[in-house]
Amino acid sequence: MTEFTPWLSLSGGLLIGLSAVLLMALHGRIAGMTAILAGVIPPFPSDWAWRAAFLAGAIVAPLAWLAAGNEIAFAVPLSTPTLVIGGLIVGIGVTYGSGCTSGHGVCGMARLSRRSIVATLVFMAFSIATVYVMRHVVGA
């Protein structure tokens, strides 16, 4: 079980949205983690610097939040091999699918992009089906 956290989750969602709007207003970019991350994996595009800065900020902020005395729940209920397999599959999928939850699910859906709406419905459906099979069919 994990605790139902509507207010904290809503607050987090509002911050994610604020970040997406600011990145568009100032940099003219979609706040999609797949594309931003791809920009710091060789071969580097010419505009890798803002992507690296965005990633650094995204890592440092939770660290600072913890250092300020706050707590953030975290648990990985998986074996290491399962985590590695999951990572490989996610990396392959987001590269072929041109985006993930942030790029398609938030920014693309907010623009009413047909591609992003389809992508989001497909990955959500497959995630729910995968968890159903792993927890209730295989019974892992």
Binding site: F74, I92, G93, F126
Partner: peptide, 30 residues
């Protein structure tokens, strides 16, 4: 590619609980 890639991503997200946008900030949690 869009549909197949998204389906593959969904399977990986369902296996691991991590998506790229979730995992990068999680690095800061140590």
């Amino acid at each position: 590619q869009l549909v197949g890639g998204s389906a593959i991503f969904g399977i990986g997200w369902g296996i691991s609980g991590f998506c790229p946008g979730g995992a990068i900030p999680a690095l800061g949690l140590g």
